[in-house]
Amino acid sequence: MEKADHLSMKDEPEVQGEPTKTAVHLSTKDRPKVPGEPTKTGTSMVDTAAAAVQSFAPLNQIHQHLCAFHFYAYDMTRQVEAHHFCSHINEDMRQCLIYDGPDPNARLIGLEYMVTEKLFMTLPDDEKKLWHTHEWEVKGGFLFMPGVPEVMQRQDLEKVAKTYGKVFHFWQVELGHELPIGLPNLMMAVTRDGQLYPEMIKETEKQFGISIEKERESRAYMKGPEHGIHPLANGGGKGLKLELREVDIKPVESVPRVFV
């Protein structure tokens, strides 16, 4: 693969919301550095004390690291390697924090909710289009759990293949943003071959020592949602974008208040 296909983030011009014509994605080496002074000893001591005495029940539930790829719901050509750290809130729903890498100082760039088909079907039609399918992400071999034997991964991914996901990203790291500026973006995931950049996939395979092609064969037996992929999911095939609107705030007198 020719290196020329990669955009060095330093050279990438600021894209102001317009769809881009060239490939936009990141290799891990190019990720922007967050500006700011290094943590002072005084503040790190507060962190240490807090970590010792506070409780972290919601975080302790985060049991799983999934790696996959997302692209923008209005621009497939902007693609991001997404590291999901997930907890089961119950058997029918997972919630995941999304980082741009597996390392300790990875940026928290978004979140994803994953629900079973059963729950997805209860959503209003307008809501369904915001959710994407996981069938091809799993069956195609693109979604994997770093460090977990494939046989064990498959036991869980059989379930994931039938689910729907809703992802928002708040930080456009692939544009080189050093800070999380701009609006949230709804994201989608791979539904067929030819969508993801081959050089991006190759790099991920190399970094995590996996073979998507090989794993695809092992997952051929898996099935997607029982009722098939819902036609309204995946944006209903349309691009979706979030736009900011200014609204008047209600005068305080109209706000119901209970004074004790």
């Binding site: 621009d75 497939m76 915001l130 995946n234 944006g235 691009g239 979706l240 609107r245």
Partner: peptide, 25 residues
């Protein structure tokens, strides 16, 4: 912003043409 300007912000979900390099979905 609301304190000085009496305005706040909400997000609308709008349907647009998707920029794509392959069919979707």
């Amino acid at each position: 912003y609301w304190k000085q300007h009496g305005k706040c912000f909400v997000l609308d979900i709008v349907t647009v043409e998707m920029n794509r390099n392959e069919k979707f979905p």
